[in-house]
Design a protein around this nucleic acid. Structure first.
Lengths: 167, 167
DNA sequence: TGGAAATTATTCAAGCTTGAAATTTCATGC
DNA sequence: GCATGAAATTTCAAGCTTGAATAATTTCCA
């Protein structure tokens, strides 16, 4: 770990590089928050729902057979207790169904109801358009470059949070 | 608005472009959340504080003379009531001071105490290193390109949330 | 002046989020 | 069988976040 020539060597990072790193991060954070705010607002106004609910439904939509609570929380990278509350509300709204897992009395399988599926399908279609409204004007090569750079960032550090990678 | 040749024209966006937009957004969101999680965790473990508190202190550090509550919330782009609670806790921790504004009995000026300034200075120094740990390995040209692309994104849509721009 | 409108801030209810503790159930080894 | 630890989930306290409602003050302008 921490070779002498690594750009992240622990001694004396060049101030100009640090400054640029900070600039990039702050701008990335700002842009992301901006897009998130747009999505949140649109979900609220057009579908009377929230981003966390949307995220949960997206995960469940993808796994038609359902997910265990623990699978769900790790897929969304949020805490266990968090998902409990969101699912609770989705269940009482009739969008989600809880079914016991055969052979394991601890676990619960969580699945979209038909109504939940229909509802999410509509939201997802709108969501695609909102996102395309923002990102759709990027030239193809720029877009591809951005994707590649973001990939780098995601993997470009090993000092903190050496968690599990892509699902 | 919405010219016939605009890439975000309201009719029939090309599916391949939409798909790419979605890919880029999801990756950007993921990368941002990853960095945020690192910062949050480090703030918690090394300084026993939270990201919202850090953000508030960063804004107050920048404006030594202090900020009004409304200026603070609009600088951070969060709701009014939100700031109230965070400041409340910072005040009771001795990091922030409230002073009435001369000539306006409604307004309150909020300012870091010396202790708050010292505390933030230490956190900011560490924060720079964490961020550089992640972004510092990006080649200069890539980094500059990312910055430019993010700028584009921030300004690349006028349909939703036509809010005020940079401070 | 005097009153409608705007500004500033707090309060409130609802929901999101976390990390830790508690609970129940399962798996393993002896 | 049975204890011990691991796994799945919920509960909990604390804090964050929002949008709406309220309250106090200031501004504007007729």
């Amino acid at each position: 770990m921490s070779s002498k020539t690594s750009p992240s060597a622990s001694r004396k990072p060049e101030p100009e590089r640090v400054k640029q790193s900070l600039r990039v991060w702050l701008k990335m954070l700002k842009a992301t928050k901006h897009v998130e705010a747009v999505v949140r607002e649109n979900l609220r106004v057009e579908f009377d729902t929230t981003l966390p609910r949307f995220d949960v439904m997206a995960a469940l939509y993808r796994f038609e057979e359902g997910l265990k609570m623990s699978e769900l929380s790790s897929a969304l990278r949020v805490s266990n207790g968090n998902v409990t509350g969101i699912i609770e509300r989705l269940v009482s709204d009739g969008a989600v169904l809880r079914v016991p897992v055969a052979g394991d009395k601890r676990a619960m399988l969580v699945r979209l109801t038909q109504r939940g599926r229909d509802e999410f399908a509509r939201m997802a279609a709108a969501h695609e358009l909102w996102i395309n409204e923002i990102f759709g004007s990027l030239p193809t090569d720029i877009s591809a470059g951005l994707l590649a750079t973001l990939d780098t960032i995601e993997h470009a550090q090993g000092l903190y949070s050496e968690g599990e990678h892509d699902a």
